[in-house]
Computed example of a mutant assay.
Amino acid sequence: MGEARIHFQARQPDADKAFGLLETALEDEGLPVAISEIDEEKQIFEISVYTMDDLDGVRKRVAELLVPLAPDLDLQIEELPDIDWVSHSLEGLRAVRVGRFFVHGAHERGQERPGEIGIQIDAGLAFGTGHHGTTSGCLEMIERVVTAERPRNALDLGTGSAVLAIAVARLARIPVLATDIDAIATRVARDNVRLNKVGTWVKAETAPGFHHPAFARAKRFDLIVANILARPLMALAPQMAQHVASGGSIILSGILERQRQAVIAAYVGQGFRHLKTLHREGWVAIHMKR
């Protein structure tokens, strides 16, 4: 099936409560939740949950979560057209400037300022155009860490569009392994690597975990960048400790501000020390060292 939207309407403040409850409960499951005003005068809002699979299961989960607020809620379902929304919307996105990095689409190619590092990320089916707070925070942290520490190699775990891997390669000119669990993301990453002419340094692989042969070949990394989600990041802490070089750094993102302390604690338990946190639009990028 394609993407579908499970939605319902409610008045404030019930709508705000429902949105907050669903956003908190579903964020780690990767289910986007949105709220929009339908009737300003009557203060009616619509809350939507988007899913691409297990529509019945997600609908049941949403209904169960909302029982305390609205036990008899009538959830509506809308099947959405099969549109590549990244392709559809990227032309309207303005380029992003983060430190020395200039992340842009084809429509703004050649508009780098003197000294800027241009990274072209065209439309694709993978996360990472530079506009989200997690990506921009990582880009700023990458410039700081790479400039200060001069790593000899790097890993971009959960690479998505490969924007972070490309940033490291363009800045440091070092080997970068870019991995993702999604084969489509890996294909998009490889396309972007070719587009940005960093194939000499960046190798993109579909790897479901650290047991993949690509990690064995690279052994340990001076720098690991992981822009995923808080819960998987915490679960990966022991393996991250095994794959970062002594004295190496990790940059972690995809973390909400309220999840920051839990993520830091998981890595401190594996011998890392926290050096800096950048805050962007309710998200954080964390630099730790081992």
Rank of each mutant, 00 (worst) to 15 (best):
L80V: 09
D53I: 02
A10I: 11
E78V: 05
V33T: 08
Y50H: 12
G271Y: 05
A183G: 08
A230V: 06
K276Q: 13
A4S: 14
A178T: 11
P68F: 05
N227F: 01
L155V: 01
A183K: 11
R152L: 10
G57M: 09
A237V: 07
L66K: 00
Q270M: 08
L22M: 02
F102Y: 10
A230D: 04
F19V: 08
A204F: 10
G92N: 14
S87K: 14
L80Q: 12
S246H: 14
V225E: 02
E27A: 06
F127D: 00
A165W: 05
D39N: 13
A162D: 09
F127T: 02
G92Q: 15
A189C: 01
I224M: 04
D122W: 05
A95Q: 03
R187S: 10
I264R: 03
G57S: 05
A106F: 02
A178V: 05
V188R: 01
E116F: 04
A245P: 11
R190E: 08
E205Y: 09
Y50Q: 13
G209T: 06
P208L: 03
F215D: 10
L236R: 02
I228L: 12
P71Q: 06
G128H: 09
G133V: 11
T200D: 15
Q111R: 15
I142Y: 01
I44E: 13
K17E: 15
E79K: 07
G130S: 02
Q9N: 15
N227T: 12
V263Y: 01
E116W: 00
F215C: 04
A226N: 08
V146N: 03
D14K: 15
A204L: 10
I255M: 04
L26D: 01
E140H: 15
R61F: 03
L66A: 05
M288D: 00
K42L: 13
Q261S: 13
A123I: 13
L90R: 04
S253G: 06
L75M: 03
E46A: 08
F8I: 10
A214C: 12
V103L: 04
D191N: 05
T206E: 06
G158F: 04
A237H: 01
G118S: 12
I181L: 07
A216L: 08
E41A: 15
G137R: 06
E37L: 15
E46K: 05
T147E: 02
A126F: 04
P114V: 10
R280A: 12
L229S: 04
K203V: 08
A235C: 13
E205T: 09
P114W: 10
H279K: 10
T51E: 11
Q261W: 08
T24K: 08
A185S: 14
K60V: 00
P208C: 01
R220W: 10
T129H: 00
M240H: 11
R220D: 03
A123F: 11
L171C: 12
A172V: 02
E91C: 09
T159R: 00
R260G: 09
K276G: 07
H88M: 14
R170Y: 11
M240A: 05
R194D: 13
T179Y: 01
V98M: 09
F127A: 01
